[in-house]
Design a protein around this nucleic acid. Sequence first.
RNA 1: GUGGGCGUAGCUCAGUAGGUUAGAGCAUCAGAUUGUGGUUCUGAAAGUCGCCGGUUCGAAUCCGGUCGUCCACCCCA
Length: 450
Amino acid sequence: MYKLPRGMHDFSSENINKRNYIINIIKKNFEYFGFEPIETPAIENLSTLTKKYGEEGEKLIFKILNSGDFIKDNKSLFKENNYKNIISTISNKGLRYDLTIPFVRYVVMHKHKIIFPFKRYQIQPVWRADKPQKGRFREFYQCDADVIGSKYLWQEIELIQLYDEIFTQLNIPILILINHKEIITGLLEICNIDNNYWNNILIALDKWYKIGLEGVKKELLQKGIPNNIIKYIEPFFLFKGTFKEKIEFFSKKLNSSNKVTNGIKDIKFVYNKLQEIGLNNTLELQLNLVRGLNYYTGIVFEVMPKNKNYSIGGGGRYDNLTHIFGLKNISGVGISFGLDRICILMQELKLFKNIIKYYPKILFINFGNSEAIYAYKLIKILRSKNISAELYPKPIKIIKQLKYANKKSIPFIISIGKKEIERNKISIKNMILGKENEYDNIETLIANIN
RNA sequence: GUGGGCGUAGCUCAGUAGGUUAGAGCAUCAGAUUGUGGUUCUGAAAGUCGCCGGUUCGAAUCCGGUCGUCCACCCCA
């Protein structure tokens, strides 16, 4: 039998309808918030894709083989046994890995005609050659909204409102976690922790909600972080309290660091303004929220469904991303929605109940060629009035045709046979109530079924 | 990239001390005197037991490999 390549999935129309429902709400709000759509190609040059991702990321990029007979021209190539050289000779293109890098590339390429700050959104699939597991596929959609060219915190405030609004409309109660990169790095500086340890510490912290405090401590010890340092930083991550109490605690204990002070100032600003504007969901300061080791530079956020411990969205500010593409001093901030996980979650929460199936509303029974012509004249009128209608393609037994309607949950059946044509009536059956009605013309029928 | 579970009909699964012709339910298709559904009844079709190789007189069953899948780890811009 046929198999799909690893990590690839077909989507049924039911899936698509559900996904479109979510996408429509996201898109609508993106646009209400002033973001404009762009699309970029699935394939980018490897030189573009590998600008930021580093060693680990590069392994996860799907590479596309160059066309032509590259063996003929590089006879000695495979004898070298150097994987990197071989790859760079036989492949210079790859599938995009995320939407941010192509976006930054887009901004740099089109900067002459872009009005800054540039607010764009992008909803497209990305591909990663990762080993698939729960909620992780090799092809999946990202929904990103980014602002580039403004470093003011009002952008952060707006993006949090965007999260708040969209998840409210999707009926998903969430927790919006927020943190600032400089609070953590400042803390690490105060502890005099060797730079070489930073990555390991950040990675361990990022797993907090997954493996818990003990897990994080264990991993830190394993990575060679001295126990006294763990003891020192522990209270900051354990501190329980309201948003305000946390801010006070951190700024009092860590005021020796400019970075921390700066980070707290930003967080405070965002928090206070949002309090005044008002949010439907809870905003929480969470020091162990890390996200993107060398990517984000300022405020970072993450969205978790209430009472679940996984993320369905995240983002943050990145100051140096355009820099690597040669565009200096341009700050960006963005958020992303995990479409597939949101879909799985909504299924779990049974939030798809009210989504209309896109099956035709009316099925015409096929009685034969001459009756079908008569039917099609009515179908044309119905379709022009935005009522979906179809004719059963074969003049087979009526029982069969009705069974088909049943299976597809088509609510109405119109039978135009010799009887009806002779009497100049239209007979429509409501499949839910089991009742049949007759109308003199299609206009009164339309008026009555709505 | 590392480790583990799983792979039998379209779907959910039975089926091992290795032994004739591999089963069930649901779904599908056909019929129950030809213009009205969901029920019921009868019947049919459907599988190279993921694939390749090995052990054996004989393999769905044991062994090796491979592909797919699920889970955990690594990582997640």
